[in-house]
Computed example of a mutant assay.
Amino acid sequence: MEILPREIRMPLDEVVAVLRDLNEFVVSLDRLGSRQAAGTADESTVGRFVADWDVARRLASARHVIGVALDAQLSEEEIAEIDALCDRGRFYGSEGAGGSH
């Protein structure tokens, strides 16, 4: 399967909201990793962050925003190809992904 290069348009306010959330997660997780390396945080700290900051819902919202834009601009065949590629991802708790990913 090959996805050919092309542009997908999205409303700027939605892109900014997704980027803001992703930036918060990346910076916060980096800081948590540094704290773990320094011994001032443990695995439960990351779990509290994920729960307290509603990370799963916010990431699902980001995925939805991108999915809506793709659905509006691509054919059903292209969407099916993208879905198949996404299904090949690594998922925590899946066989082969192990507990460390």
Rank of each mutant, 00 (worst) to 15 (best):
E77C: 08
R63V: 13
E81W: 07
P5D: 14
S100N: 09
V55C: 05
V18I: 14
G39F: 15
L12P: 03
E24G: 00
L59W: 01
A56Q: 03
L74M: 15
S28K: 02
A80Q: 11
F49S: 00
L29A: 11
L85G: 06
G89V: 01
A72V: 02
R31N: 12
R88K: 14
G89L: 07
T40Y: 09
C86H: 09
D42E: 08
C86A: 13
G98M: 07
D42W: 04
T40S: 15
Q36D: 10
L4M: 08
T40W: 06
I82L: 13
R35A: 15
E78Q: 14
E24H: 01
L74T: 06
S94R: 15
E81P: 01
V46P: 00
G33E: 03
D21C: 02
M10I: 15
S75C: 10
L32G: 02
V46I: 10
M1F: 12
P5L: 04
L19F: 03
V50D: 01
L4V: 13
S44M: 12
E78S: 11
D87P: 00
D52S: 03
F25Y: 13
R31W: 10
H64K: 12
A97E: 04
I3E: 12
E43I: 06
R6G: 05
R48P: 01
V26R: 13
A62D: 03
M10E: 02
W53M: 03
R63M: 12
S61G: 14
D42F: 07
F25S: 00
R57N: 15
